[in-house]
């Protein structure tokens, strides 16, 4: 007999070695997340995927599924907390969706919609952050970085490079690039690198492509992120 856990009371089978997130996705259960990506080693930092496992809060993306776990995911309490964590990400940086070219394709924005976030709730930090437009094809707008490390992991694990890193401590955390000048143009990044495309917000963008897909026809304009995420990730996780 295969092993199983329950998520919100529903039985979900899992295979040895799977995380709660992997088991959930394979079973068609969406757990909100931003720093998790099925192709890379989980990071566990955004904390949107925090679930309650037998009463204890755990990150679904890193916590292994184990026989007998009773997982709570879609509860009012967790949704409220996830909404506040998302609001924290918004106030920490400078996220102005209407003027951002990523709008409609942005996972941070889509998660916020999904969690029914209607305001910032917390006071905005308005940090002073830079834009690095030095590279011919790829740019970084640090205002929108949420430190998920997906670009770091993609560059290391897929592109075989080491273009990005997160530096600093606490609120002073920031994205740095591997060049003596500190500029993207002096790194070996290319527009075809997965690291250049993986950003869940509008922090890393491919130049000259901003409005090729008009607003209104973008990924999350007509679909919720749970649907998109499951369509994309379901098969891979389920294999």
């Amino acid at each position: 007999m295969s092993k199983s856990i329950t998520i919100d009371g529903n039985t979900v089978p899992f295979e040895e070695g799977q995380t709660i997130m992997e088991a959930a996705t394979a079973a068609g259960v969406y757990i909100p997340h931003l720093c998790h990506h099925l192709e890379f080693a989980p990071h566990g930092s955004c904390k949107l995927c925090n679930v309650k496992v037998n009463g204890r809060v755990c990150s679904a993306c890193t916590f292994p599924a184990m026989e007998g776990q009773e997982v709570l995911n879609n509860t009012q309490e967790l949704t409220d907390d996830r909404q506040k964590i998302t609001q924290m990400l918004f106030v920490e940086g400078n996220h102005f969706c209407p003027s951002c070219e990523k709008t409609g394709n942005c996972q941070l924005q889509a998660v916020a919609y999904h969690l029914n976030m209607l305001d910032d709730h917390y006071p905005l930090f308005f940090p002073t952050r830079k834009v690095d437009a030095s590279h011919a094809e790829v740019m970084i707008d640090h205002n929108r970085c949420i430190f998920c490390t997906l670009c770091v992991r993609a560059s290391q694990q897929k592109d075989g490079k080491d273009v990005f890193a997160i530096s600093g401590r606490g609120l002073k955390k920031h994205l740095i690039v591997n060049a003596q000048s500190g500029l993207l143009k002096d790194t070996d990044i290319e527009a075809t690198d997965q690291a250049a495309h993986i950003c869940p917000t509008g922090a890393i963008l491919i130049k000259h492509t901003a409005y090729q897909v008009p607003i209104g026809e973008r990924i999350y304009d007509h679909k919720q992120i749970d649907q998109v995420s499951l369509e994309k990730e379901h098969d891979q996780h389920g294999k």
Partner: peptide, 21 residues
């Protein structure tokens, strides 16, 4: 705590600074 938060996770990184404010 706001000074010493390592900044890895959102609730502590942003939360301790919000708490300070």
């Amino acid at each position: 705590f706001a000074h010493e938060s390592c900044g890895f996770c959102t609730p502590c990184r942003v939360g301790t600074s919000l708490l300070k404010k």
